[in-house]
Protein backbone atom coordinates (compact mmCIF):
# COMPACT_ATOMS: atom_id res chain seq x y z
CA UNK A 1 0.00 0.00 0.00
CA UNK A 2 2.75 2.40 1.08
CA UNK A 3 4.81 1.37 -1.90
CA UNK A 4 1.83 2.01 -4.16
CA UNK A 5 1.43 5.52 -2.78
CA UNK A 6 5.14 6.21 -3.20
CA UNK A 7 5.01 4.96 -6.80
CA UNK A 8 1.93 7.10 -7.46
CA UNK A 9 3.59 10.16 -5.93
CA UNK A 10 6.78 9.77 -7.97
CA UNK A 11 4.98 9.06 -11.25
CA UNK A 12 2.62 11.99 -10.71
CA UNK A 13 5.49 14.35 -9.83
CA UNK A 14 7.39 13.36 -12.94
CA UNK A 15 4.35 13.85 -15.21
CA UNK A 16 3.63 17.20 -13.57
CA UNK A 17 7.22 18.37 -13.95
CA UNK A 18 7.15 17.41 -17.64
CA UNK A 19 4.02 19.49 -18.31
CA UNK A 20 5.21 22.42 -16.16
CA UNK A 21 8.52 22.51 -18.01
CA UNK A 22 7.06 21.97 -21.46
CA UNK A 23 6.15 25.64 -22.26
CA UNK A 24 9.85 26.47 -22.14
CA UNK A 25 10.81 23.88 -24.74
CA UNK A 26 9.64 26.04 -27.61
CA UNK A 27 9.35 29.74 -26.81
CA UNK A 28 7.98 30.51 -30.28
CA UNK A 29 5.42 27.72 -30.25
CA UNK A 30 4.16 27.51 -26.68
CA UNK A 31 0.95 25.69 -27.64
CA UNK A 32 2.82 23.02 -29.55
CA UNK A 33 5.38 22.42 -26.82
CA UNK A 34 2.68 22.19 -24.13
CA UNK A 35 0.73 19.65 -26.21
CA UNK A 36 3.91 17.67 -26.82
CA UNK A 37 4.72 17.74 -23.10
CA UNK A 38 1.25 16.46 -22.27
CA UNK A 39 1.61 13.61 -24.77
CA UNK A 40 4.85 12.56 -23.05
CA UNK A 41 3.44 13.01 -19.53
CA UNK A 42 0.41 10.79 -20.16
CA UNK A 43 2.59 8.05 -21.63
CA UNK A 44 5.24 8.36 -18.90
CA UNK A 45 2.86 8.20 -15.95
CA UNK A 46 1.72 4.55 -16.20
CA UNK A 47 5.17 3.34 -17.26
CA UNK A 48 6.86 4.98 -14.28
CA UNK A 49 4.18 3.82 -11.86
CA UNK A 50 4.51 0.24 -13.02
CA UNK A 51 8.31 0.38 -12.80
CA UNK A 52 8.27 2.03 -9.37
CA UNK A 53 5.80 -0.54 -8.07
CA UNK A 54 6.99 -3.59 -9.93
CA UNK A 55 10.72 -3.90 -9.20
CA UNK A 56 11.88 -6.63 -6.82
CA UNK A 57 13.39 -4.14 -4.37
CA UNK A 58 11.29 -1.04 -3.59
CA UNK A 59 14.40 1.12 -3.51
CA UNK A 60 15.28 0.27 -7.12
CA UNK A 61 11.85 1.32 -8.37
CA UNK A 62 11.96 4.52 -6.34
CA UNK A 63 15.43 5.29 -7.68
CA UNK A 64 14.37 4.82 -11.30
CA UNK A 65 11.24 6.94 -10.89
CA UNK A 66 13.17 9.50 -8.86
CA UNK A 67 15.80 9.79 -11.61
CA UNK A 68 12.98 10.36 -14.12
CA UNK A 69 11.67 13.12 -11.85
CA UNK A 70 15.10 14.76 -11.73
CA UNK A 71 15.36 14.58 -15.53
CA UNK A 72 11.91 16.13 -15.84
CA UNK A 73 12.89 18.84 -13.36
CA UNK A 74 15.96 19.58 -15.49
CA UNK A 75 13.52 20.26 -18.30
CA UNK A 76 12.41 23.31 -16.33
CA UNK A 77 15.86 24.77 -16.90
CA UNK A 78 15.86 23.90 -20.58
CA UNK A 79 15.26 26.68 -23.08
CA UNK A 80 14.95 25.86 -26.77
Amino acid sequence: MLRGLLALGLAWTCAHLITVGSPQWGPGARHDSVVFGQMIAIAAFPVLLLIAFGTQKPLHGALIAGTACILAALGLLFHA
Binding site: A15, H16, I18, T19, V20, S22, P23, V34, G37, Q38, M39, A41, I42, A43
Partner: peptide
Protein backbone atom coordinates in the same frame (compact mmCIF):
# COMPACT_ATOMS: atom_id res chain seq x y z
CA UNK B 1 -7.52 5.46 -22.70
CA UNK B 2 -4.47 7.31 -24.00
CA UNK B 3 -6.28 9.65 -26.39
CA UNK B 4 -9.15 10.24 -23.96
CA UNK B 5 -6.84 11.11 -21.07
CA UNK B 6 -4.74 13.26 -23.38
CA UNK B 7 -7.78 15.28 -24.48
CA UNK B 8 -8.48 16.19 -20.83
CA UNK B 9 -4.84 16.37 -19.64
CA UNK B 10 -5.12 20.01 -18.64
CA UNK B 11 -7.34 19.07 -15.73
CA UNK B 12 -4.67 16.78 -14.26
CA UNK B 13 -1.40 18.13 -15.52
CA UNK B 14 -1.76 21.85 -16.24
CA UNK B 15 1.27 23.54 -17.83
CA UNK B 16 1.57 25.76 -14.74
CA UNK B 17 2.02 24.87 -11.08
CA UNK B 18 -1.03 23.56 -9.22
Amino acid sequence: AYTGTFIRTRTLFPPVSY
